[in-house]
């Protein structure tokens, strides 16, 4: 930025560090295309989700929730070190911590989309090389990456802890890898649904409320229906009822269905055709959310 190049000897008596108004300067440096610009947007959004590059008060909630997510992992390592026995498993981590994941999603998904809609920043993006779909893709990728990190960091910490403590018997590498595959699916499903719901209102508070309400509704209905079905001894129907909760859905579809882990729900999941159905429902929900986003942004862009 300095107008004086460091090697230039300053003239005798002239103060070094004078600001010269050298007028307007043209830029003839490199210009990247859509790809790097979209990546920059995704990284910018991902940092923002965790409150980085934002005021201190924006950091409180994400850091608090990240801390809470780490707690079971840290306690488990301590218990492993002292009592030499395992506590939390890998595949059940997301299910146990589902409320924290849901609160994080509800609190941060609206941040990714609402301000640009509310303060009408979108036209400024669209007047640049990035397209509408680059924009939506970057926002989704950032939220999915945030959800993945939120889940994968404590799981990885737990796994490293297990290897360092060196319990008798081999480490549960299979469980860890299964939980990582699960984490990818959790991240994609939750981010798509969360961002899609949040995009329908330019008000952040309303977006937070909508996402959390949707989670409470799904988990409440799932628990109540499953309990009722179990009370009339219809265990097949109860197994299906668990799938209403998105956290059990991914567990049933991926961790249990594909990788054969132990179910983390209080009951069992449907088997056989049920696994295929769970996978289809999961992919269907993702597709539905993306379609909703496409429709929403078509409308927003034409404003």
């Amino acid at each position: 930025m300095s107008d004086l190049s460091p090697g230039t000897p300053s003239l005798g008596g002239a103060p070094a560090g004078v600001i010269h108004d050298i007028g307007y300067r043209h830029y003839d440096g490199p210009r990247t295309g859509r790809g790097p610009a979209t990546a920059a947007l995704a990284v910018h959004t991902l940092r923002g989700v965790f409150g980085l590059g934002r005021p201190a008060r924006a950091k409180i909630i994400p850091f608090l929730l990240v801390g809470t997510m780490m707690l079971p992992a840290v306690v488990s390592i301590a218990v492993m070190a002292v009592a030499k026995q395992k506590m939390a498993g890998y595949t059940e981590y997301a299910v146990i911590m589902q409320a924290v994941l849901a609160i994080f999603l509800a609190a941060q998904a609206p941040y990714t989309v609402a301000p640009d809609l509310r303060f009408r920043v979108l036209p400024l993006y669209l007047s640049r090389p990035v397209t509408l779909w680059d924009y939506v893709g970057a926002k989704l990728a950032a939220m999915a990456a945030a959800m993945f990190l939120l889940l994968a960091v404590p799981l990885t910490t737990l796994f490293i802890g297990e290897m360092v403590v060196d319990l008798p018997g081999p480490p549960d590498t299979g469980g860890y890898l299964t939980s990582m595959a699960g984490a990818v699916c959790y991240a994609v499903l939750l981010a798509c649904v969360g961002v899609a719901v949040a995009s329908f209102t330019p008000r952040r508070g309303l977006g937070v409320a909508a996402v959390i309400a949707l989670y409470l509704l799904a988990s409440g209905v799932s628990t109540v229906v499953a309990a009722v079905m179990e009370s009339v001894n219809d265990y097949d129907a109860a197994a299906w009822a668990w799938l209403i909760n998105p956290f059990f859905l991914v567990d049933a579809a991926v961790q249990v269905g594909i990788f054969g882990a132990e179910p983390s729900a209080p009951g069992s999941y449907p088997t056989g055709i049920g696994v295929a159905a769970a996978i289809t429902i999961m992919l269907g929900l993702i597709a539905l959310s993306v379609t909703a986003l496409v429709i929403r942004y078509r409308k927003a862009a034409s404003r």
Binding site: G29, R31, T32, G33, P36, Y125, R128, P129
Partner: peptide, 9 residues
């Protein structure tokens, strides 16, 4: 931020 969206490093 908007300069980066225009493709500037």
């Amino acid at each position: 931020h908007l300069a980066r969206m225009s493709g500037l490093p």
